[in-house]
Design a protein around this nucleic acid. Structure first.
Lengths: 208, 208
DNA sequence: CAATAAAATGAATTATAGTTCATATTAACG
DNA sequence: CGTTAATATGAACTATAATTCATTTTATTG
């Protein structure tokens, strides 16, 4: 008997895996999923291509994990805004959730675009639906609460939730799309305010 | 001198090209852009792969034309609903335009999904943005008219237009996505009504 | 029919990535 | 230090499609 995995090697293994994932996310944030190739990942992480396969079953597996890691935090932030510690009206919470979504998308630039809208391998597409659905679920729950509290009109909260996600994605992704030059600045505050107004009016349905 | 293109051959050429485009659209409608390969197209159109290149520069060119042909008619239909012959209120016209958009998307199934949301080659993505923008422009113009007529609140019509397109795409594409079994029926009328309510309330902004 | 130009063919080539695996390297333990 | 097991390596292999091009077929005219 001469060799056994020890805490040190296990730690190294975990670190290597994390390094690969972090590097992969950097690649996606820089050039989208289309730039995430095994070769490029290996290159940037200073390992051989074969090594990647010691940590990930195959490319789909890698993409899925990248997607989860990249989006998990994003979803959490919106979740926290929608369901805060303090007691706030549903109107305020929806407003904050939309603002948070938008702010992070704008800050994240290419990454947000890649996660929300960029063309990806069909294998990854399923994961994106999950991602978008996570947002829809947050808005749906919040809208249900708002209906209960008589702040919002009675409505199909699933549809409204999805509509909000779609509206946000379209209005945010438009300006961020392609390799939209970071110079092409747009009025972030104006965009966010507009979207808050649009969505709040929609769920309140005061108009006839 | 012995051979010169004549009207007959020119006509045949045009017909061949049309056949290829129609076949390509059928393929996309059946299995999305991912199933549109030169080999498959040639096979289904009963020509050799090389022949395709007599009619199209390259694949990107083919995809672009497929996109234009496929979406052109769709956009026109919404355009007609938004700007009809008869005099109608902006509210009614917006309602009809949204309904038309949704009805055609639902009827078109896979094709609508492919045009609006399916992952495609980045080369084709630019064309999609054009396509979505065409819808945004229609809604923007209609919203501007509605603001003028005091039917809608003052707002950034570009943002609202894009928001409507995004909201529609998200709510419609969700149920249509993947190879969503045609059996998985959803309440089409309910969905359309909900979206009309959502969008009309949003642009009217009666709520505060 | 002969001559010729256009059009079609499809096997071969090219390009791009994902995946594998025989070999080399490294780490742990006696 | 020597043995052994785990890890890493990266060139070779595989798969998938796009693209090309020498050859064949077809259409037109004198």
């Amino acid at each position: 008997m001469a060799y056994r995995p020890t805490e040190k090697t296990e730690a190294r293994k975990r670190a290597q895996r994390k390094l690969l994932l972090d590097t992969a996310i950097k690649l996606v944030a820089r050039g989208g999923f289309q730039s995430l190739t095994i070769a490029a990942l290996a290159e940037h992480a200073n390992v051989a291509t074969g090594t990647v396969y010691k940590y990930f079953e195959n490319k789909a597996d890698l993409c899925t994990e990248v997607f989860r890691l990249g989006s998990g935090r994003e979803v959490d932030h919106v979740q926290w805004a929608a369901f805060p510690e303090q007691t706030l009206s549903c109107t305020e919470r929806l407003s904050k959730a939309i603002t948070r979504f938008a702010e992070r998308a704008i800050a994240g630039h290419r990454l947000a675009y890649a996660l929300i809208a960029e063309p990806v391998d069909p294998l990854v597409e399923a994961e994106r639906l999950t991602y978008r659905h996570a947002y829809t679920a947050i808005f749906k729950t919040l809208i249900d609460e708002g209906i209960e509290a008589k702040e919002f009109a009675a409505q199909d909260s699933n549809i409204s939730g999805a509509a909000i996600v779609g509206a946000l994605a379209e209005t945010l992704v438009g300006p961020l799309a392609h390799g939209a030059p970071a110079t092409a600045q747009f009025d972030k505050t104006h965009l966010i305010e507009s979207m808050v107004d649009f969505c709040l009016s929609a769920v309140k349905r005061a108009a006839r």
